[in-house]
Design a protein around this nucleic acid. Structure first.
Lengths: 215, 215
DNA sequence: ACCTGAACACCGTTCAAGT
DNA sequence: ACCTGAACACCGTTCAAGT
């Protein structure tokens, strides 16, 4: 009795994230992670509930690396921007984990902490209840949606190794049916993902400003 | 030579989507789909390139059901709203396909068609180039991000069978650390997912209005 | 309390063979 | 051109046993 666990949660997180970073989210498995830790598959069941838990482990590892500071004196928009940008950057640091994050964010306690911080900042604008809920969900959608687009969007800029390939595919589309798509593919090539994300976020913030008591 | 294919693409799409709808996205496999079609696993390789293609099949099936009408006379905002809502509704019709959609949207030609329609509508506001790109990505992020939140967000309203469970989990969080989260969980219970989505979209549209030539 | 190997019911895909 | 079964190298997890 009372034997100390063989692996810390941190150790599991690091090993699982390393596998995803190196081989992609599809390469993570009980057996592969166990092998990376130098043990048998069944040993992992002493630390996680099952396969699904492995994904959550990775999501939590990625999101818990997001850092932001409280800025009670600054404008609430600046605070929202900082938290959202920290979240987006943390996700972007681990592009191969994005499919997992999109899909399991909910189970991660680190995601809950980010949500609470975002809500606190948004609440400083004065909105409450349903309006606060909508504002929060819109900002969260912005973070996750832009991260998803960066993953492999039809306009994916740099970063991803197959971005050039995706761009080529868009450019080879029938120009009569996809005129606008082709047109902005060029704009995407000269644009940075972070600028685009901040641009989208600022649209949202401008909308919050413009609709202060609506809905 | 010239033997007609045993299964049409439509037939494959329908069967694959039915499996996902009934058993969830994790239940889709070459062998299960083959069995549903009354054939052996290897036969599928005459119709799809491999496992990954199955997911794309499902995504395309879901997104191609989105319908919208051109409204050249109406306000461009109304047109954007209609297309985005059609996309969001199509996704919502098949909640168990959402993980696939979030993850494979890019490979779907139906998604490209929706993107082009959205771009055409947004372009009517007068924006071009980088600004059009950002507006487009923000709207797309809104559709996908809200759909993701509906899937299992910490505030998931109705629809998903485990929504009550998620709500209960949020409500049982330590109230000192998650005050705002708990506060809006109540608001989420009385709100409809579609209202929330439209609210978020309108924030974005208001922002486009307010920042007509910025960035 | 925690660790672990054997075994089972899956999975995608290569290969070789059939029409 | 299209169909298909056998076989291979995986996978998650149950069970029973060990300390």
């Amino acid at each position: 009795m009372g034997r100390p666990p063989k692996f810390s949660r941190q150790r599991l997180q690091d090993a699982a994230l390393a596998i995803v970073d190196e081989k992609g989210s599809g390469a993570l498995s009980m057996r592969v992670l166990a092998a990376a830790l130098g043990t048998g598959p069944m040993t992992l069941y002493n630390h996680v509930a099952g396969r699904e838990d492995l994904d959550v482990l990775v999501v939590d590892a990625v999101l818990s690396r997001a850092r932001w500071s409280r800025q009670p004196d600054a404008d609430w928009r600046a605070e929202v921007r900082e938290i959202a940008l920290a979240g987006w950057r943390a996700v972007r640091e681990h592009p191969r984990a994005i499919p997992l994050i999109l899909t399991r964010r909910t189970r991660s306690t680190a995601a809950l902490e980010m949500a609470e911080a975002l809500l606190a900042a948004l609440a400083r604008s004065g909105c409450r209840g349903r309006r606060l809920l909508v504002a929060f969900r819109a900002v969260m959608a912005c973070i996750m949606g832009f991260a998803q687009g960066d993953l492999a969007g039809p306009l994916a800029a740099a970063a991803s190794e197959n971005a050039a390939e995706v761009l080529a595919r868009v450019l080879s589309l029938p120009p009569d049916r996809f005129a606008h798509l082709i047109e902005i593919a060029a704009a995407a090539r000269d644009s940075s993902a972070e600028e685009e994300f901040l641009g989208g976020l600022d649209l949202l913030l401008a909308g919050l400003e413009a609709q202060p008591a609506a809905s």
